[in-house]
Amino acid sequence: MNGQQNYFKPAIIGGLASGLLSVIPIISAGNCVCCLWVVVGGVLAVYFLAEQNQGKISPGDGALAGLLSGLVGACIVTIVLSVSIPFLGLRMLRHQMDQMRRIPGMPGGIEQFYGHFLNGRFVILTIIIAVLIVSGILFSIFGTLGGLLGSALFAKKQQTLQAPPPLPPPAPPVA
């Protein structure tokens, strides 16, 4: 649009929504439907951007707001996960290992290898960095999609000059 948009507040609000909804147990299952909460965060960011600018936003503005909200959401997911790692993180990793055990034909020796790793020193730091990278990529992609959807929903259409209505047919001559 004009390059003067302020994305800060919309991105923070959208990112908070997408990040928090993605980490609350049970509710976070909504993300299984095409990353629903991330898309919702992007749409929310565009809603607030449109409110700021009286609906004068382009799809590019929406995409940018959605992308930034996705990045904020990824940071929030990482922060919440890093706080909860001492309580949940290692349990979640063991859950992943349990899932792996169900596959027939898993390469031998891997189970012991992972078990050894889980008792290692840098596991928490590695988890935080990996989650930040992966969720940063995924949240920004689906946030952008949400932003585009939001711009389609909330951007006001440009008023165009309309042709005047056709003249009524001439009245039949009175005899």
């Binding site: 993605s22 980490v23 976070s28 993300n31 299984c32 990353c35 991330v38 997911v77 996960l81 993180g89 979640m92 990793l93 992943q96 290992m97 792996m100 390469p107 891997i110 290898f113 992972y114 790793f117 290692g120 596991v123 590695t126 988890i127 990996a130 989650v131 990278i133 992966v134 969720s135 995924l138």
Partner: peptide, 17 residues
């Protein structure tokens, strides 16, 4: 396949699937 990062990568994707 022979790296512990595999489990961590799976954990990172667990927020979305």
């Amino acid at each position: 396949q022979r790296s512990p990062f595999y489990l961590i990568a799976r954990l990172a994707f667990s927020a979305l699937c």
